[in-house]
């Protein structure tokens, strides 16, 4: 049996008196596609924020590839192989679309402290960034400042940025939120393709029908607690889950 790539032990965070994530013990196995579902305010985003280092927990531990990363800052977790997007698009608005991705490629390559060479000398970074933009169908907008992108395009740009980091674990918080309906299939297809690669994906998503076919495992959060986990069928049949969340949707 493989070791889990991410393990949380009694992971808890409190905001004032409110416990947003409440003693969550979860093992994520490598190369799995895991979807996290749960009602609004269940603590899904907060859970991602804890995993990625945006927040530090009140108590509990986080292990990543066997290392205790509970106390290490976000940029080091990225370098260890975690890549995340944000529920609300988070890009570099005044930089061009290409530069957004190029910066991620550069970060991944480890060229951080180089102050005398021109950045264009590293042409492979731009080539790679352009190829990534192509994979999310944004290469036509490479030269525009990214603030001019439509909402759905910004989400796609974020995906390209994360892919550039070549993370072992992808944390995707509602990547299709706010996208036009006709754009969703392209992203779904991209996610499906990612799944076949060697990488672990954690996805928060409200469109349950969409995650069903993609996911190996569903994890249900409610009120900050881990309510259930299992394969999609098990979860759909779980009465507790139906009561807490799925309501009328389950067959």
């Amino acid at each position: 049996m493989a070791e889990p790539i991410i393990r949380t032990q009694d992971l808890t965070i409190m905001f004032g008196g409110h416990t947003a994530v409440d003693h969550v013990n979860l093992d994520i196995m490598p190369n799995k596609f895991v979807s996290i579902i749960g009602p609004n305010g269940a603590g899904k985003t907060t859970f991602f924020n804890l995993l990625s280092g945006q927040f530090f927990p009140t108590s509990g531990r986080i292990l990543f590839k066997g290392h205790d990363v509970t106390d290490i800052p976000a940029h080091l977790r990225t370098r260890l192989g975690m890549g995340r997007n944000f529920q609300i698009s988070n890009i570099f608005p005044d930089l061009t679309v290409l530069e957004n991705v190029r910066l991620a490629v550069q970060a991944r390559s480890g060229i951080h402290y180089q102050i005398l060479r021109h950045h264009r000398k590293y042409s492979r970074f731009s080539d790679q960034a352009m190829a990534l933009l192509e994979s999310v169908k944004l290469s036509g907008k490479a030269a525009q400042p990214s603030r001019f992108l439509a909402h759905g395009e910004k989400r796609k740009l974020e995906i390209a940025i994360i892919l550039a980091l070549e993370p072992e674990v992808l944390l995707l918080d509602e990547p299709t939120a706010g996208m036009a309906v006709e754009e969703v299939p392209a992203i779904l297809e991209l996610l499906a393709r990612l799944k076949t690669d060697k990488r672990t994906i954690l996805l928060v998503e409200h469109k349950i029908d969409m995650v069903m076919s993609l996911s190996d495992t569903l994890v249900v959060l409610a009120n900050g607690r881990l309510l259930a986990q299992g394969n999609p069928r098990q979860i759909m049949e779980n009465e507790q889950v139906q009561a807490a969340y799925l309501g009328g949707i389950a067959p």
Binding site: F92, P93, L103
Partner: peptide, 14 residues
């Protein structure tokens, strides 16, 4: 990049 969005830069690993 930091000027534009410090958080995103940090989560790129910088």
């Amino acid at each position: 990049a930091i000027r534009e969005n410090e958080k995103r830069a940090e989560f790129l690993g910088y």
